[in-house]
């Protein structure tokens, strides 16, 4: 059993999308087939075009619908992009005034009751919670509540601990499609803390489930922070070649997509142990110089020292191969598509 969450979080199996998004909770990338991703990404592209054109008919897509955000951890991008997405679709957004810490959670209300309270008010609930599979608990509770009330509230995971962050993986993959046309035949290199990083886990899983062909995944991490065997096995089982190393130079020259993440000092036993490897995991303009001219540099953000000094940031940002702001922008578009689709808008 996991953490302190109730049994329901471990027994609930979310429905596969299987061509129909309406009323489906979004809690894991495992719900998406290749066909579902193709459908979703077509919607994302369409929505983006319409947003850029200030198409006011977007406001009809979720008019009259309410989305609640329930964030038990701080977040800028996930929280605000979901809110912006809903507003751009013509829906309304609610949250507890002053954040979760000032809600009845403060009075000791358990998660199940808080979730059901929110499910009574909103059509969609965006949940970020520190415990793995907390969104499964939400899905379970909302299914029972919906049956009781004759409604169909959905939960969309905004990240559960070191578990999954499905919309992040979707926006990452969409960004790869956006710049590279598909995920097929690419050399995709994931760098940094691959043992703890939930974004890299979800992305690797999604690439595997998507069934990318001729794709190679390179995992670049210090020996102590390697990709878990479970994910390596899953990826290989889906026919994706993998390569593990602790030296970026091994793969940099062939890389089409470079996905950079931070290594946290607190993951190391000593400062000395951290210092010994840290220099190898800092992206600088010099490093980017040695990469292919048509590659892209991605990062889930926020970033700190893993992209060097503020001066380095400025140089990296100016490079057209850096697409992390596109990634963020796409994040809102992906969340628009997910909200509209699950809430039954006609896309």
């Amino acid at each position: 059993m996991i953490n302190s969450l109730p049994l329901t979080a471990t027994i609930y199996q979310p429905h596969a999308i299987d061509g129909d998004f309406v009323g489906k909770h979004i809690v894991t990338v495992e719900q998406f087939s290749r066909a579902d991703l193709t459908t979703l990404f077509a919607w994302v592209s369409d929505l983006r075009t319409r947003v850029h054109a200030h198409d006011r008919s977007l406001l009809d897509l979720c008019a009259g619908k309410v989305m609640a955000t329930l964030f038990y951890e701080s977040s800028t991008r996930t929280d605000m992009s979901f809110q912006a997405a809903m507003l751009r679709l013509g829906g309304e957004v609610i949250a507890t005034s002053g954040g979760v810490q000032f809600s009845s959670v403060y009075k000791g209300e358990n998660l199940a009751d808080t979730l059901r309270a929110v499910g009574c008010y909103a059509d969609a609930l965006v949940l970020r919670h520190p415990e793995v599979r907390s969104s499964y608990e939400a899905a379970y509770q909302l299914d029972l509540l919906g049956e009781k009330l004759g409604t169909r509230p959905v939960v969309i995971s905004g990240g559960d601990g070191v578990g999954e962050h499905p919309t992040q993986a979707l926006l990452d993959l969409y960004t790869i499609f956006d710049f590279k046309g598909s995920a097929d035949g690419l050399n995709i290199t994931l760098v940094g803390d691959l043992v703890n990083g939930r974004t890299v886990h979800s992305l690797a899983k999604l690439l595997a489930l998507h069934g990318a062909t001729g794709t190679r995944l390179n995992f670049v991490a210090p020996p102590a922070l390697r990709m878990p065997a479970s994910i390596l096995n899953l990826v290989q089982a889906h026919g994706i070649a993998t390569y593990e190393t602790d030296a970026l130079e091994d793969v940099l020259g062939d890389t089409d997509v470079l996905y950079w993440t931070r290594i946290q000092q607190e993951r190391f036993a000593s400062r000395a142990a951290y210092d010994a490897i840290a220099d190898h995991f800092i992206m600088t303009p010099d490093v980017l110089q040695r990469a292919k001219p048509d590659m892209i540099l991605m990062h889930p953000l926020p970033r700190k020292h893993e992209m060097g000094t503020p001066a380095d940031h400025a140089l990296l940002d100016a490079d057209p191969r850096s697409v992390y702001f596109h990634q963020m922008h796409n994040g809102m578009m992906v969340r628009m598509a997910v909200l509209a689709a699950t809430l039954g808008a006609r896309l």
Binding site: T10, I11, Y12, Q13, P14, H15, Y140, D143
Partner: peptide, 8 residues
């Protein structure tokens, strides 16, 4: 609802 029941 689909359940994954551990060890019935």
């Amino acid at each position: 609802m689909i359940l994954n029941i551990p060890g019935m």
